[in-house]
Every structure is written in structure tokens, then in C-alpha cells.
Amino acid sequence: MTERGRKALLLAPAGIWLLVMLALPLLVVFVFSFGERGAAGGYVPAFTLEQYANLPARWTAFKNTLILAPLGTIAALVIAYPLAYFLAVRCSPKWRTSLLILVIVPFWTSILIRSYAWIFILGGRGLPALLESIGIDDIRLINTPLAVLVGIVYGYLPLMVFPIFVSLDKLDKRLLEASADLGSTPWRTFRQVTLPLSVPGIATGCMLVFILLMGEFLIPAILGGGKVFFVGNALVDLFLQSRNWAYGSAVAMTLVVVMLVTVSIYMKFISRLGGQREDVSLM
């Protein structure tokens, strides 16, 4: 058999699989988003922009997603950065690997069960009961945006810590010493040396978390109790309850487009930041 033939044979199953199970379904969503809803649900072929015109009906879901996804990303960044810094710069190498693994392990266990744990903590008989015993009454935590935010940060923190750790770990520690030798205060060293050099890690972490948050369904479903819902929850509702495939497809397409646009704007912004840093280092 020729080299070409062998390669084709090896590639064919994966290629066909990806085409049938990924490209075809996404194409179907694209086509259906221009269709109409059947009388009994489902889809009737048509070419109309009606579904897209109806998008404002689901504005709340988009609004929640577009507020809580960036907010959750920033909150995760704020909590993750000091930990990544500690692991990469301050922590003794003896402990580093074990501590790092301890951060990553939760991410690979079921997010369903980890979110469920917060029902326990934030629910009526958890934290609110504890607060009541010290005199703070009438705190509702579960089914609020705050609960969803806590769930988000909890769920995606490991994903934020890891890339920042990698970029801080690669950083040449002699730069920090040089900066200190030249009379910089620790804070100034951090602001002018450490922070700029960890921008790639911050960028990667934020992007990973943001992308996952845009399509989130489970955390709002479990901790938002139908009061705080994302586009993902709207999609489940549209496809499984009201069986409005055409409109659901339009919502899904919009979600993907919004996600791609936000991410590409963000990448441009980050590469501009990176570009500036390059200029400085050239001097």
C-alpha cells in the first residue's frame, strides 16, 4: 500500500466521525435557525429571519450570561492569581507539585456533584442558619446571582490557576532579584516585572474560563433555581420543553457568534498588550 493510501485509511474514521458528529450537526443548527416552528414543535423548512428578530424575547438570558460570565472570570482571576503566585514563586519546590495537583484534582471530578455541594452550604440550613445563630437574620443565598457566582468561581478556579502558574513558573527569578537590587520596592517589582510577564498566563486562563462560562448550564440550573439563568438554560428550555427547534437554533447560533466575537476582540486586546510589552523590552 502506498504511503498516501495508508494515511488516508488511518485518517478516514476520525475524519468521517468529526464530519458526521460535529460539522453536520452544526450545519443543521445553522440551517434550522432560518426555519420555522412546526405546529407540534420541531422544525418546518423556511427561509426567514423571524427567529433572529425574536431574539430580544430571551434578552434576560443573554444579559445574565454577559454579566455573570465576565464577572465570574474576573472573580476567579482575583482569587487565583495570588495562589498561582504563591505556588510558583513563594512555595518551596518540595511541596509545589503536590499542591499543584491538589488544585487541579477538583476540576476533573464531576462538576455536577461539586455544584451540588453548594446547595448544602448555601441552602437554608447551611450558611444562612449559621449566620442566624450569630444574629444576622434573613439572609437568602441559594437561588441568587451570588450563589451562581460562587458556584462559577468554585467550579472554574483550577482552570484559572494552572495557566497563570505556568507563566509565573517560567519567569526568570533573577529578574526579580535584579529589580530588588536596583532598589525597587516589592510592590513595584510586582507591578513592573512580575505582572507584565504573567500576562500570557492571565490571558489564557481568562479565555478558558470565559469560553466555558458562556455555555454554562449546570451551575445556574443547580444554584440559580430557575431565577438566575444563562443562555444555556434557555436552550435546554427551548429544545426540551417548548420544542421550538428553529428559535432554539437561532439562540444557539447567536451564542456561538457572541462568544467568537468576544473572544476575538479579547485576543486582539491581549495581543496589543503583548505588543506594548515587546516594545518596552526592545529598549
Binding site: 443543521v28 455555555g215 444555556g232 435546554v236 432554539g248 456561538v256
Partner: peptide
């Protein structure tokens, strides 16, 4: 997002 893959696969 997984949710888009899920619904796309379902309707396709």
C-alpha cells in the same frame, strides 16, 4: 460549548 454540541447532535 457542550450544550450547543448536545442540541446540534440531537436535532441533526
Amino acid at each position: 460549548p457542550g450544550i450547543v454540541i448536545g442540541i446540534a447532535t440531537l436535532i441533526a
